[in-house]
Measured scan of single mutants.
Amino acid sequence: TSSHKLRLYERDDYRGLMSELTDDCACVPELFRLPEIYSLHVLEGCWVLYEMPNYRGRQYLLRPGDYRRYHDWGGADAKVGSLRRVTDL
Rank of each mutant, 00 (worst) to 15 (best):
R68Q: 06
Y55Q: 01
H4F: 15
L21E: 00
L17M: 12
Y14G: 08
C25S: 06
V42G: 03
S3G: 07
P53E: 09
R33S: 11
K79I: 06
L89S: 15
S3I: 10
N54Q: 09
I37W: 13
E10V: 04
G65K: 07
E30S: 11
E44G: 12
L6S: 02
D24T: 02
W47M: 09
R15C: 11
E44C: 09
N54W: 07
D72A: 07
E10L: 08
D88N: 15
L21A: 01
L6N: 03
Y9C: 00
R11K: 15
G75R: 03
V48W: 13
G81T: 01
P53M: 05
R84C: 04
L43C: 05
G65L: 02
G74V: 03
S19H: 12
D72P: 02
D12F: 14
A26P: 10
D13A: 07
L43Q: 11
L8A: 10
P64N: 00
G57F: 02
S19K: 13
T1G: 09
A26G: 07
Y60E: 08
V86M: 10
S82Q: 00
E51S: 11
L62K: 01
G57N: 00
C46P: 14
D13Y: 10
G16V: 05
L40Q: 00
D66A: 08
E36I: 09
G57E: 03
F32T: 09
D23A: 11
A78F: 08
L34I: 15
L6A: 03
L40R: 00
C46M: 13
R58G: 06
V28F: 04
T1K: 11
M52K: 15
V86T: 10
S3N: 14
E10R: 08
A76N: 12
L21K: 06
L62F: 01
L21Y: 03
L43M: 15
L40K: 05
P53I: 02
L6G: 01
R58L: 01
I37K: 15
G57I: 12
A26D: 11
D12S: 13
L62D: 00
H41V: 08
E30R: 10
A76H: 13
E44V: 07
D12P: 10
